[in-house]
């Protein structure tokens, strides 16, 4: 039984913002299926009375003093960008519509 169809893979790939070729969608549908079947096993022991653990050691939120710290020079940060303009990241249009 296939848990994840090609359509589902394509839908999730769109959510993940990864363009896949048709052959990649087909292969992933088969591969993800195997993995999902195996991981479904966790539900066998994850009963309602077991609390979830998000981090290995208990965490409390950490704050630092509210004082300015030096930031990286703008040019150093922009140096790795695909495109820059006037000291800023240059990006494609954000909205699909005109």
């Amino acid at each position: 039984m296939s848990t994840i169809s090609r359509d589902e893979v394509a839908r999730v790939a769109a959510l993940a913002r990864i363009d896949l070729r048709p052959d990649e969608v087909a292969r992933l549908a088969g591969e993800l299926d195997v993995i999902v079947e195996s991981v479904a096993r966790v539900s066998e022991v994850a009963t309602a009375d077991v609390p979830a653990t998000s981090h290995p050691l208990p965490l409390t939120n950490v704050f630092r003093d509210d004082v300015p710290e030096p930031a990286l020079p703008i040019q150093d940060v922009l140096a790795g960008a695909p495109q820059q303009e006037n000291g800023r990241f240059a990006v494609p249009q954000i909205l699909g519509e005109e």
Partner: peptide, 19 residues
């Protein structure tokens, strides 16, 4: 991401997004 990620990264990101 389609061009820059390899097969295993695509596999795991898509599985994670699904989960």
């Amino acid at each position: 991401r389609g061009a820059g990620f390899g097969d295993e990264v695509k596999r795991r990101v898509i599985l994670g997004t699904y989960a």
